[in-house]
Design a protein around this nucleic acid. Structure first.
Lengths: 102, 102
DNA sequence: TCCTTAGTACGACCACCATCGAACTTCGAT
DNA sequence: ATCGAAGTTCGATGGTGGTCGTACTAAGGA
């Protein structure tokens, strides 16, 4: 399970609303979530329409992951991002729709 | 309508999600919203279980009002606060429930 | 008329967070 | 074996927002 590169992912049921709102209040992070929500496939870190530096992007993905909103895994050097749609919807119903619709 | 003391209240349909999230990311403001959601009656500014100074409280109410979440009106010297439940629910379905449940 | 109560307005301060660049790691391809 | 592409880590910086105290205004009661 733990290949030493896959970061830990929290249990959504135990994430306080505070953490989720802090994650989603940033427009860059909300854009990431919206793009994932609109996509059929997972997206690598470099594949989003965001205009920040790579180090800043890394920071945003970490915040989203620790808030339980995305899952991350490696494919080669690419770090893939998946929206935890069902998890989030069960813990915070309606929230993803709000973000997706903008 | 305008008695010179009643502040302007924005049309909810035109409020960006950004503004609402900025309002709700603060735990003090979320507490205010939660208390209003749990109450049958409107509550004056001094009637909440928050532990900040009066000037800080004024600031929080202003943010909530400008985000379209509450309506404010005067009764004597007391400034009453009412949750705009239906407005918010129609513009951001599910959001108030998340805050109310905490 | 005072005095108290309720809240606002204004500055100042402080902590936090988004941001960046530079240096580094890891993987894949040449 | 090298090189480039993809991210990470670290430290520094700058702006913004939550906080407070003080001074102020408005309303109601003694």
């Amino acid at each position: 399970m733990d290949d030493g590169r896959t970061p830990p992912h929290p249990d959504i049921a135990q994430i306080p609303l505070q953490l989720v709102l802090e994650a989603l209040v940033d427009p860059v992070r909300r854009r990431i979530v919206a793009e994932l929500a609109a996509s059929d496939v997972d997206i690598r870190c470099g594949g989003f329409g965001i205009t920040v530096s790579k180090s800043t992007a890394t920071h945003h993905f970490k915040v989203l992951r620790e808030a339980g909103l995305i899952r991350q895994y490696y494919v080669g050097t690419a770090r893939m991002n998946a929206l935890r749609t069902d998890d989030v919807e069960s813990a915070f119903p309606g929230l993803l729709d709000l973000v997706a619709k903008g």
